[in-house]
């Protein structure tokens, strides 16, 4: 099982022949991801990393049967790339690109809202199902197969949590990096819901940060529907109000999107919230041994 992607996922790379696309595509192939080709407009017909290059996503889908795409296209063209993937029938679209204008993402969200696809990101590390398929930029070697699902807005903080989980003797089913932008395709709640419904996942780690109301929304859903232990952490307890902390969405606006407010509501909904990011793995191990 696992969620969204597995060893049967057929993956293409948009922005395949660029520096980042090339590097991460080869890393994904090495991990064992079933990478079936890539798209770079104007380079259709060529071969890159022993895989076919196509001019359009539609061509790639028709020729390879791809159902997942990962996007490494520069910010100015990334919105277009997402919509192209959606239109071509890709089911899971993972957008790594950081710095897409918000106006573009408003239109993308609208465009994909009535299409049968799921967007992960943008501005995210991607998604990985341990030992099966890596569709992202995360260091694959730290992900060992196990029973813990991870949902996170941040890249390196996800790796931190995963590493702790593995060191605690557990492992990972699927880790979803949902991204740190104000508008993202898959929310914390949606990712938690997928993991909650996955029989292989026994516990869920939910990592959030200051800004927005997604963690609260997820917490309320968990309170009503949760069947597994959830460990939570919110980064930015020491962040001053009104300042953007790296991620475009990480800015404390009103009183509800501070770390303290989010942690409070998560606790009230039955989530085991840790104060220190160094305690995530141990807390999960403890919850699962109960």
């Amino acid at each position: 099982m696992s969620v969204l992607v597995n060893k049967d996922s057929k993956v293409i790379v948009q922005g395949f022949t660029g520096n980042e696309g090339t590097y991460h595509a080869s890393q994904m192939i090495e991990y064992g991801t079933q990478l079936v080709g890539g798209v770079t407009p104007g380079k259709g017909g060529q071969t890159h990393l022993d895989k076919p290059v196509f001019n359009t996503v539609k061509d790639a889908v028709e020729k390879t049967g791809a159902d997942v795409s990962i996007i490494f296209v520069p910010p100015a063209f990334a919105a277009d790339a997402i919509m192209e993937a959606a239109e071509a029938g890709i089911k899971v679209i993972v957008c790594i690109t950081e710095g897409i204008p918000t106006k573009d993402m408003i239109l993308v969200k609208e465009y994909i809202s009535n299409r049968d696809c799921r967007l992960i990101g943008p501005n995210c590390p991607g998604i990985i199902t341990a030992d099966e398929s890596k569709i992202g930029i995360m260091p694959g070697f730290i992900f060992k197969k196990g029973t813990v699902g991870v949902v996170s807005k941040s890249g390196t903080l996800t790796y931190e949590a995963v590493d702790q989980v593995v060191k605690a003797g557990l492992g990972i089913t699927t880790a979803v990096g949902i991204g740190g932008d104000p508008i993202i395709g898959t929310t914390t709640k949606e990712a938690v819901e997928l993991l909650m419904n996955d029989p292989e996942t026994h516990g869920i780690i939910m990592i959030g940060e200051i800004g927005g109301g997604m963690e609260a929304e997820a917490a309320l859903w968990i309170k009503e529907n949760g069947t597994k232990p959830v460990v939570g952490f919110i980064a930015g307890q020491t962040a001053p109000p009104g300042r953007r902390m790296g991620h475009a969405g990480a800015i404390v606006g009103g009183a509800d999107d501070t770390a303290a407010a989010k942690m409070k509501i998560m606790r009230e909904c039955g989530i085991r919230v840790v104060e220190s990011p160094a305690e995530i793995g141990a807390a999960m191990a403890e919850e699962l041994s109960k």
Binding site: S154, T156, F233, G236, Q237, M245, G246
Partner: peptide
């Protein structure tokens, strides 16, 4: 990484 940076600030505190 921005998330780990915020988490590190929290650790310091």
């Amino acid at each position: 990484g921005a998330g780990l940076a915020m988490a590190t600030m929290d650790i310091i505190k």
